[in-house]
């Protein structure tokens, strides 16, 4: 092999992937951004018309529902999953003999597809034969649990299902964090007679701040991208009561044939993701390069 080629080899090996990322990530984002500024319907058009699609988007009651749902769903999901994850991690951190087995059980839903999770919870929560009928069968004739078909409550069933799926993962993150706290400090505190709950609240949890941030980023990311779970569990319904930005985008792109709206909603989703992720990644990369 000639020497110049040998020297350029690393760059040549990296080049195809780099070009692929440039074209298929950044080029495609640019394309979508461009189309979001046009009056494209079924076919893309390339004459820039300004922000018409965005004003149409923000005036759309369906998009309004989708964004409201994202806020309610996202906040509830992130808060409950973090609290539950932290609680389970602390409970598991007490020298539990069967820790390995319990951890395996708590985490397995993460291996499932959201479609499987949605299918399972759709069956459990269906009012006719599921949980409601079962509890009524126990003699509580008036028991009602019809959230799945109740437009005001259906979004909370999505929260229930995603917490079941992801809280074990948050537990695993926090457990790794608890284990990384310096054992000497904890021992010293125990010697000083500081109660366990104080050790956790004053020493252990504050030192885990980076893990909280990571967990928040991952969960927020998961919430914004949520698509399959809603499709499988509620199909976005009743009506479009459980629409999220991702299902709105999909409906515009593939069933309504409104490329302009699909592109504009995708761009808004990306901006929301980047508002959460970019500061985090930026600080991570900077910290690493220093």
């Amino acid at each position: 092999m000639p020497e110049w080629l040998e020297k350029q080899l690393p760059k040549l090996v990296l080049a195809p992937s780099f070009i692929a990322v440039l074209v298929f990530v950044y080029g495609f984002i640019a394309w979508t951004g461009w189309v979001s500024l046009t009056r494209s319907r079924l076919m893309p058009r390339y004459e820039i018309e300004g922000l018409v699609q965005y004003s149409k988007l923000f005036a759309s009651p369906r998009w309004d529902t989708a964004m409201n749902n994202l806020v309610v769903f996202g906040l509830l999901f992130i808060i409950i999953a973090m609290v539950l994850g932290l609680l389970l991690a602390i409970l598991l951190d007490q020298q539990i003999r069967t820790e390995g087995a319990i951890r395996t059980i708590y985490l397995y839903p993460m291996a499932l597809s959201m479609i499987v999770t949605g299918t399972a919870w759709k069956w459990i929560l269906n009012p006719g034969l599921g949980l409601e009928a079962t509890v009524r069968g126990w003699g509580f004739e008036d028991f009602t649990f019809d959230w799945l078909v109740n437009p005001d409550m259906a979004i909370y069933t999505v929260v229930i299902a995603i917490i079941w799926q992801s809280s074990g993962f948050v537990m695993a993150l926090f457990l790794a964090g608890l284990r990384s706290v310096d054992g000497e400090i904890i021992k010293a505190a125990q010697v000083d007679g500081i109660p366990t709950w104080r050790i956790y609240s004053a020493i252990v949890i504050p030192s885990m701040a980076p893990i909280f941030l990571s967990a928040f980023i991952v969960l927020a990311h998961l919430a914004i991208k949520s698509f399959d779970l809603v499709i499988a569990l509620t199909g976005g319904g009743p009506g479009y009561a459980t629409d999220l930005p991702a299902t709105y985008m999909y409906a515009m792109a593939f069933s309504r044939g409104d490329l302009g709206q699909a592109a504009a909603s995708a761009m808004v989703m990306m901006m929301v993701v980047f508002a959460v992720v970019v500061p985090y990644l930026y600080s991570e990369l900077r910290a690493k390069n220093d």
Binding site: I29, T32, K225, A246, Y250, A266, V273, F274, L281
Partner: peptide, 9 residues
């Protein structure tokens, strides 16, 4: 980290 919706079309 991009939401894949942005490359779908």
């Amino acid at each position: 980290f991009i939401p894949f919706q942005v490359v779908l079309l």
